[in-house]
Design a protein around this nucleic acid. Structure first.
Lengths: 346, 346
DNA sequence: AGTAATCAAGTAACCGATTACTTGACAATC
DNA sequence: GATTGTCAAGTAATCGGTTACTTGATTACT
């Protein structure tokens, strides 16, 4: 069977307690004995059982990441940030994908992760999701990105300001018929994109421009969804002169549809995205750049602080700013022109 | 403290053994008692301790994914496939990122994951990586993508054939000065890209074309790396007429550099990638499409089979095919308007 | 010298679920 | 009526570390 502390203790000629103390680096162990224990462990190829340690100490030694999607660029960038922040920590990372927010889960996250981890990073969950209630019921450390939930810390994006900046950018260029490609439930508070919707409406209202409801369409946050929405917009009676997509991916789709119809982003219809993925620079897409890596890293750090019981060192809510990155998809002119200017929004 | 089986047993008026049997769905429990136990568990909001269960049964209830990088599109797509395959399973997913293959890890993967998981999915690790030896030493179920390692099952891509097809596509268009942007160690067997390198050389040799070593540059599998490599190529004495990049991301970078210099992919220099990411369709990039989602899902299924002891049901090595997707980055014309006209010849 | 303080190391009681083994009740068979 | 078989349910050992508590030895101090 597996090598256990007992085996190491026997080989090193000490008790199991001493083995544990020696390997965990306690100061109350004679250096000579410590070396002997380490040698014995090495020789036996000993690896402690995390399950036993977890059971004994009550600490799982891992954190869970809960997200509704794994196949979106934003998630990848946040995960990358989380991974960076977790480096050097001895915490492991568990991934739990809730899938479509409306889907019921075969195993609810509570039963699934509850006592397997010491805390959760919750990414982009809609606040009215049943999962949110489930998670908060657990009464465990949580750090989330998105709306501020009924738990500890959260990292938020200044979504509203970003949407205002994006909309004002289009208005400033003289556009009045501005279409909106949102995710799913633009009118549902508690959903991430709601704040963006508010920002859009606010900017339009301030400029005295009407929001044409026929120009507001869902795009499901995917390329295909964005492409379909754009097709609908172009097929409408009075197509828009500018489109604001709530994600870069949807903007990509919109651009694809335009190209298929021989239209050029920028000169024919202005397109602005929201995310600032690296690939957007290649498509010359004007976008609201979001620091997803930083979001991930900050969320992870907050959770670790909470777990270590030193929460409160940083604010419970951190709001990160977005940044407007202007490219030719809203300026028109040279398709290869890569004019880039940046403005802070936050 | 936490609610345990004891609490449930007390409330339900039975022993802990019966609680365990009832909740695990054993058939030898009176339906009436089972219902009582379930009710009690529900009322107490009972969630079993995975650590205790793992310790008792010896089964961790989770698998680990080991990969050197999390911030590449290929990884994201494989992870998505893995996640899909794991749905409905009661296995959890642990993520372990080794980081740069040459980096030493703060905590070696063996100590880190050894007894925390029931098996590993190993993605794209170079075979000479010290991690590979570490992992195989554990003598645990492993399913990997990449070279066939010293362990159970593996999923492989027909890299060589893909590279041959890509190269022959360029040769067929009349190109003779074909540059190669590879990852890091093109000459290092045991690295994923080695097979692609063989395929490239093979196709060139078959066509009687020389491989100019000054046209073979590393691009680190990143956009920035590809952009830099392309700049070097264009700055050379005799720039290539076609470029084969070992990843779409590097091809994106190459295209970016070309655009910055007013060159059009396809008409000025042909560019072909390798990956087939969704975004490549937007850039009109010809590429070798790789079924990464399927790779992830297949690898996960193989591992689950191995864990359940029914390995052998499928072949130990599954080789998945690639597919050539032709777009205007090798044909010229396309989105920017020019039709395919004359092909360069050397 | 005698007593107290200090400290390394051992003993054993946990942590919480699982399950081999045992018990006891009731039914079936001789 | 006595004996055996069946089966639900209880008892308690077990998984492998961790750590409060105990022990025994050495050092410090009156």
């Amino acid at each position: 069977m597996n090598v256990t502390v007992k085996d190491v203790a026997r080989v090193a000629g000490v008790s199991t307690a001493t083995v544990s103390r020696a390997l965990r680096g306690f100061q109350t162990v004679d250096p000579v004995i410590r070396a002997a224990v380490q040698q014995a462990a090495e020789r036996l190829n000993y690896v402690g059982s995390p399950a036993a340690a977890a059971l004994s100490t009550g600490r799982a030694g891992s954190i869970g990441v809960i997200t509704p999607f794994v196949n979106r660029m934003a998630f990848q960038r946040m995960l990358s940030g989380i991974e960076t922040a977790m480096r050097g920590t001895d915490m492991d990372l568990l991934l739990y994908c809730t899938g479509d927010p409306s889907d019921p889960h075969p195993v609810p996250p509570r039963k699934r992760l509850a006592r397997r981890v010491e805390g959760f990073i919750v990414l982009s969950l809609a606040m009215h999701s049943p999962d949110v209630e489930e998670i908060s019921k657990l009464n465990m450390p949580v750090a989330s990105f998105g709306e501020h939930g009924p738990w500890g810390a959260s990292v938020q994006l200044d979504d509203r300001a970003g949407a205002v900046v994006a909309t004002e950018h289009l208005i400033g260029l003289g556009h009045t018929r501005i279409a909106l490609i949102h995710g799913r439930d633009a009118h549902d508070p508690g959903v991430l994109e709601y704040q963006r919707h508010l920002g859009f409406n606010e900017a339009m209202a301030r400029a005295g421009l009407p929001v044409d409801p026929t120009l507001v369409l869902p795009g499901d946050f995917t390329i295909a969804g964005g492409a379909y929405a754009m097709a609908q917009l172009l097929d409408g009676d009075r197509p828009p002169t500018a489109v604001f997509a709530f994600s870069d991916e949807m903007a990509y789709g919109a651009i694809r549809t335009m190209r298929e119809r021989g239209l050029a982003p920028g000169s024919d219809v202005a397109v602005i995205g929201f995310d600032g993925h690296e690939t957007s620079s290649l498509l010359d897409l004007t976008t609201i750049t979001v620091p997803f890596e930083e979001i991930g890293a900050t969320t992870a750090r907050k959770l670790l602080e909470e777990i270590e019981g030193r929460s409160g060192e940083t604010a419970d809510v951190t709001v990160l700013p977005t940044q407007l990155t202007v490219r030719s998809s809203t300026l028109g002119g040279g398709a290869t022109g890569n004019l880039v200017s940046s403005l802070r929004s936050g």
